[in-house]
Design a protein around this nucleic acid. Structure first.
Lengths: 136, 136
DNA sequence: TATGCGGCCTCAAGTAGCTTGAGGTGCAAG
DNA sequence: CTTGCACCTCAAGCTACTTGAGGCCGCATA
């Protein structure tokens, strides 16, 4: 059993699509893959591990650039604290985003409540929802 | 005092940028604006109200298509319940998104905790963060 | 009168992170 | 020999705008 695999199997192993792998290569997140005689990309175990790391970071909502940074930290002779810091910063952004979305939902809840109390079932042309939404 | 205003003032009044207004027009969210003799777009009070409604809906995280739907409901002889339903659906999507982000944050919190306990300050090349992130 | 400035105009391209499609090659099985 | 699959490249499409190039119009100032 060789350890080399083609792009389709690498995609299955890492849980992403084939064009996504080519895209990651094109933006420099993945080094240019080795090629077989036929010109097909060939991947080894460590390539698939890296791909899995990238895909998981993306699942966690990190941007391509954040993932690039994290990988660069790992590959430089730096301290673990740097990776910790990058992930912690990402958590902060995540929590800020959550707070924003919650505030939006609370505002929408008020608007919905007023419509239900004052005009539900009436004509949409005079529904309070539109007035409430348009408050600058 | 005329009630007509040019695009710059409309943008200020509605709280969006000038190119954004032109963009909304180009995608059919706003009807084609009237023009002055010089070919400049001209807006009246009700145009600015509609623009404000659009901008607010977008602030609330609705997509262009959701806003289109909401405006279409308002302008059709339908019941207020339809608008209520559209906004309620959007709230459900919002809450699903919030739940997803919270789950991500909890997963990242565990990863951070393990790094802090086991390897913080060590070399990033053997940091548990990378292994934990790459768990498929 | 010249000239500079601000606001408007159009059209095109850039942003993120991919996906989708067109058109073509290589290899193995039937 | 032909069918079919997996691979290849390059280009365009998606969302919601922003940014930039290049140009017109009218007013105010030197």
């Amino acid at each position: 059993m060789t350890r080399e695999m083609m792009i389709g199997d690498a995609a299955k192993a890492a849980g992403c699509s084939v064009p996504t792998i080519r895209y990651y290569e094109s933006v420099g997140l993945l080094a240019e893959a080795a090629r077989t005689a036929a010109g097909h990309r060939s991947y080894r175990r460590q390539d698939v591990e890296r791909l899995t790391l990238i895909r998981r970071c993306r699942d966690f909502g990190m941007s391509i650039n954040q993932v690039k940074t994290l990988i660069a930290i790992r590959e430089s002779p730096s301290s673990c604290d740097n990776a910790l810091e990058a992930v912690t910063l990402h958590r902060e952004q995540l929590n800020a985003r959550i707070a924003d979305l919650k505030a939006l939902d609370r505002a929408l809840a008020l608007i919905v409540a007023r419509c239900e109390a004052d005009c539900a079932g009436g004509a949409s042309s005079c529904c309070t929802i539109y007035d409430d939404l348009a408050v600058a």
